[in-house]
């Protein structure tokens, strides 16, 4: 499931933006050092492939409904963690812009949930040890399914944590968790089967593609590093959540995040972009309104008293917006 702007608070959205931006910066720096310029077009074209592949539905065995490939694990197997992460992030970026899938603030969450887990945890720590160098059919399926399930369970868990921490949805943590995890267990199994089906074909047709991806980075300590990065980011996320639970006021989180992003200790020096973002976010987060407004639950009567004014005013505002649009629309045609 994609996280959505509408469910996010700026603090949670901002934290995950920073985490994802940091990971992107780290992976980009790594790709630069790697100097394999074949990967420049390859990553882009494979990202486009994921788009195309997502348009092809298959029937889910024994259910009659249909599913499609997610692609995260497949990319990790073909490209290795860093390039795969950047490719997944770019796919999500385009989905956010063109299909408003999630939204721009939620993009940070989505890149984290759907990128970090498959690329830096599920692939190096689950898929590779299970599959080994030359997996047989059964082993390949097993490895892909377990890896995909792991990635999706973690992703779904992250969605629940992010939603609860944001406090826009009233879903209780445990209830939401019970809803999300089983659904994503099913999705994970399907994703694993689909990934295994594609990889099995590639292994038969052009084995060097899959083995080259492995051989290109043989005894590197990649899994360890990926694991550390993943855990560091997960810790950052959890830290944010815990501080929210610990404090009575949402403002407490606002401040702790502002402090965090102010003296950033992210895995990678923060780029200019999220420096700017953090600034903007800080400004919004400390808008006096947060503390000035009386707690809604505390003063229901006060709210109810002005509700008629709210409804009338709201309708009037919308009418004014529409009027503005109409007036502006006419002008260029006359001119």
């Amino acid at each position: 499931m994609h996280m959505a702007d509408a469910l996010l608070s700026p603090a949670v959205g901002g934290t995950l933006w920073a985490a994802s931006a940091g990971t992107i910066a780290w992976c980009s720096a790594r790709m630069r050092r790697e100097l394999d310029d074949r990967k420049v077009p390859l990553m882009g074209v494979l990202g486009a492939f994921v788009f195309a592949a997502q348009m092809i539905n298959f029937t889910i065995p024994a259910t009659g409904s249909s599913g499609h490939l997610g692609g995260g694990l497949l990319l990790a197997i073909l490209l290795g963690p860093h390039a795969a992460f950047l490719t997944i992030a770019s796919v999500l970026f385009i989905q956010a812009l063109f299909f408003a899938d999630g939204g721009l603030l939620a993009l940070g969450c989505n890149i984290f949930n759907l990128g970090v887990f498959p690329a830096f945890l599920a692939y190096p720590l689950v898929y590779r040890p299970l599959a080994g160098r030359h997996p047989g059919q059964a082993r390949l399926v097993l490895a892909a399914v377990v890896a995909a399930v792991t990635a999706l369970q973690l992703g779904a868990f992250a969605v629940v944590v992010e939603t609860t921490a944001s406090g826009i949805s009233a879903l209780p943590f445990a209830g939401f968790l019970l809803l999300m995890q089983p659904i994503h267990l099913a999705i994970g199994i399907i994703e694993g089967l689909a990934t295994a089906a594609v990889i099995a074909f590639v292994v038969r047709a052009r084995p060097e593609l899959v083995t080259a991806a492995l051989a290109g980075r043989p005894a590197e300590q990649l899994p360890l590093r990926g694991m550390l990065a993943g855990f560091a980011l997960a810790a950052l996320l959890l830290g944010g959540v815990v501080s929210w639970f610990a404090s009575e006021h949402p403002d407490g989180l606002e401040w702790s995040i502002a402090r965090l992003t102010g003296e950033t200790e992210l895995p990678q020096p923060a780029g200019r972009l999220h420096g700017t973002l953090a600034e903007v976010q800080e400004k919004v987060a400390v808008l006096p309104d947060y503390t000035l407004r009386p707690g809604p639950a505390a003063e229901p009567a006060g709210r109810a008293g002005t509700s008629l004014a709210g409804v009338v005013g709201g309708l009037a505002t919308l009418a004014l917006c529409a009027l503005c649009g109409l007036l502006l629309k006419k002008r260029p045609r006359r001119g």
């Binding site: 539905n57 298959f58 029937t59 065995p61 009659g64 689909a194 295994a196 089906a197 594609v198 074909f201």
Partner: peptide
């Protein structure tokens, strides 16, 4: 629909 056998 397209079965997984042919999807791969």
């Amino acid at each position: 629909g397209l079965g997984l056998r042919h999807f791969g």
